[in-house]
Nucleic acid binder design. Structure first.
Lengths: 197, 197
DNA sequence: TAATTTGCCTAACAAACGTTAGGATAAATA
DNA sequence: TATTTATCCTAACGTTTGTTAGGCAAATTA
């Protein structure tokens, strides 16, 4: 169990992610996952410890990718607007890059068992803090206005997370375009330039 | 089964909504729902036809409330900015008014069985169209700028739906304040008034 | 060649699931 | 008072669930 068997384990997790996304974590059975790989349910246990372990792997893998990305953005010394743009772009790329895992990450993390659940929530908060940091920067640079930072971050992340609900890899919008539109939307909103009344 | 028994049925649906929210539709069993009411699982079937029926009732009840609200907004003859503000306010009020049902409505609708699922998606699309209509009005009035209307609506709704993930009735933010902040955020975004560079 | 590891199998388990059948009790209605 | 209705019960059903035990064949390693 060093390098070769990892490959099969990754296949299992990939198939599981697809099914967890389609049917939900509880509704997708070990027999379903096994069937999608053409093997018996019991055979899965040569590679994984439990169904819960699969969910944990998916959720923490995604969390790791996102955290790494936001840390990198915050470490590089750019202005706040650029940082926000990069953070959005990274998030969109990661999410659209693996829609199955992302959907599970966003919808099914609640089904994690207690000790892992707490750990996961900690990572989530860390990610949110990464965005808060950018908003603080923006205020110091006098380019952002966000009295309630927690609220602003939640609203921004809602748009980012909601992508898993509608993004279609075969659709006409590329991840880059989504990121661009989203950044523009977050920065300027709907109203046209001129203020009136 | 005319008016009196409805009361008990509503109690069941209310208890079920709470559990569906906490544990998810599949993880919350009929025995769990019954236990939370102090009765046996089999007794539930004097009042409801099936577990699926409970989910359907919750999802379609919420959909009905939201659709009614957006239709009212679009029927009343105001300008687009006012309409958007009212639509947001109504949505926030409905969602925060019943967090259990709302969470189920947003997270668990996927578990609806096939004929009902299609019906539900139709209602969802109708609601989205209600918002699109407002954006179209705004463009005609020359106060909104949204080249990709579908994208804009999805982004707005993401913020509205995400409320179920963080709103705390005991928190310091009232539904009205949330609606106000959200409307402002959608209309003007983060950037401060003056454009620079 | 011999020994070990990998990847799958069949068989089975105990538990939990949604749901039905049939009956009891108490309240509402006639 | 007689009858109906509402609400709950116990017992049981057939299925599906995640998981374990034990074994077998092929590939890998020594």
């Amino acid at each position: 169990m060093q390098t070769g068997s990892n490959s099969r384990k990754e296949q299992i997790i990939e198939s599981a992610a697809k099914l967890f996304r389609e049917k939900g974590f509880e509704a997708a059975s070990m027999r379903d996952i096994a069937a999608s790989l053409g093997i018996e349910a019991a055979s899965l246990y040569s590679h994984i410890k439990s169904k819960d372990e699969i969910l944990e792997t998916i959720c923490f893998s995604m969390a790791g990718k996102l955290l790494k990305a936001i840390d990198e953005v915050n470490d590089i010394y750019f202005n706040a607007e650029e940082k926000l743009g990069m953070a959005v772009k990274n998030h969109v790329e990661i999410v659209t890059g693996d829609m199955d895992a992302s959907s599970v990450f966003i919808r099914e993390w609640r089904r994690l068992k207690k000790p892992k659940l707490k750990e996961f929530i900690k990572l989530r908060n860390k990610y949110e803090e990464g965005f808060t940091q950018i908003l603080v920067n923006g205020e110091n640079e006098n380019v952002f206005e966000a009295p309630d930072k927690k609220f602003a971050v939640l609203t921004i992340l809602s748009a980012l997370n909601w992508i898993t609900e509608w993004y279609d890899p075969k659709g006409k919008m590329t991840p880059d375009e989504i990121a661009e539109h989203l950044t523009k939307f977050i920065l300027t909103g709907l109203r046209v330039k001129t203020l009136h009344s």
